Simulated scan of single mutants.
Amino acid sequence: MTYDPPRPAGRLLLTPEDKEAPARTRRLRVLGLGQHTEPFLDAFADRLAELAGAPYAMVNFIDEERQFFAGLHTPYGGIPAEPPTEARTDATKPRIGRYMARDHGFCPHVVVRHKALVLEDVRDYPRFAGNPVVDEFGIHSYLGAPLIDRTGIALGTVCVSDVEPRPWGRAGLDTIKSMAAELVERIELREGGF
């Protein structure tokens, strides 16, 4: 297994370097995405959660500073539209809200790789097991695909996750990739004024 070079402080760089972030941020602004919620993206996340049978589903746009879940489905509903992401469900675990730091979660890996990522049990992968979402939110499985538009930029991801290990299998991978392709088609219509 290979790791990225260490940071100056000597820590492993667990979140990959994202050289495309400035171009992505500009492209998201042109498309009017990544700054506010849209009902069709929440509905898309709801549909994705249902298809995958997952408690969490997101349409995630990633800029230079943070991740923004413009479409979000959670098991507890009542999603806050603004920060903070740490509205507590109980005394120990924060809720997943609309915003997340760039070094949290697995979507930053998907956008840098430009490839889907299947993690049936994130704890099986040393690179991912130490991710803050594992401890903070209890996420143990992840399935995500990039939203690559006609310019070749990965705008973000569509993804599902669960607090239990999940055998996503080939069917899950095919579903997440087809849902990403469907959403990219809808996003590209934005330039035509949908």
Rank of each mutant, 00 (worst) to 15 (best):
G172C: 04
P83A: 10
P6M: 02
G32H: 01
G193T: 00
V30I: 13
P108T: 13
T85A: 13
A181T: 06
L189I: 04
Y142I: 07
F106H: 03
L189W: 09
A54S: 07
R186Y: 01
A181W: 02
R66G: 13
Y99W: 08
L28T: 04
P146E: 10
G71T: 01
S178I: 00
T37D: 10
E20F: 12
R102M: 15
T2G: 11
F40D: 03
A70T: 09
K177S: 12
A171D: 14
L33Y: 01
T89L: 15
E64P: 05
G169A: 14
R170L: 11
P83Y: 12
P5A: 12
T89M: 15
Y56T: 10
Y56V: 08
P83M: 04
P75H: 04
F40M: 05
I79A: 09
A49I: 13
G97K: 08
P80A: 09
N60L: 02
W168Y: 15
P84Q: 08
F106G: 04
F61E: 07
E136P: 06
E50H: 10
Y3Q: 10
I148V: 15
E86F: 14
E82R: 14
R102F: 02
P167Y: 00
S141T: 03
V110N: 09
V118W: 02
A49S: 11
V59R: 00
V30F: 13
C159P: 03
E17K: 12
R24G: 01
D162H: 06
P55C: 08
A129F: 13
G152W: 08
P167S: 10
F61G: 00
E191R: 15
T85E: 12
P5K: 15
T89R: 14
N131M: 10
N60Q: 08
E120Y: 03
A43C: 02
K19T: 10
V30L: 15
A43T: 06
G156Y: 06
M179Q: 01
I79E: 15
A116R: 05
K177D: 06
R127N: 12
R29H: 09
L31I: 06
A154D: 02
A180S: 14
E136R: 15
L117V: 14
E82S: 07
M179C: 11
Y125G: 08
V184D: 01
P55N: 03
I153P: 05
E17M: 00
F128G: 07
I176V: 07
G77A: 05
Q35S: 14
Y76R: 12
A57Q: 00
S178C: 04
P8W: 09
D162S: 11
R123L: 14
P126N: 05
V160W: 05
F137W: 08
Y3F: 13
I148D: 13
F40V: 02
C107L: 12
S161W: 01
G152E: 13
K19V: 11
V110M: 14
E82D: 09
R24H: 00
R166M: 07
A171R: 15
R113S: 14
G144S: 06
T25W: 05
Q35W: 00
G105Y: 04
P108M: 13
Y76L: 10
E182R: 00
K177Q: 15
K115S: 13
G144E: 03
R166E: 07
A171C: 01
E17V: 15
P108K: 14
Y76H: 01
T37Q: 01
A21R: 10
A101P: 04
E164V: 12
A57E: 05
D4E: 03
P146A: 09
C159M: 08
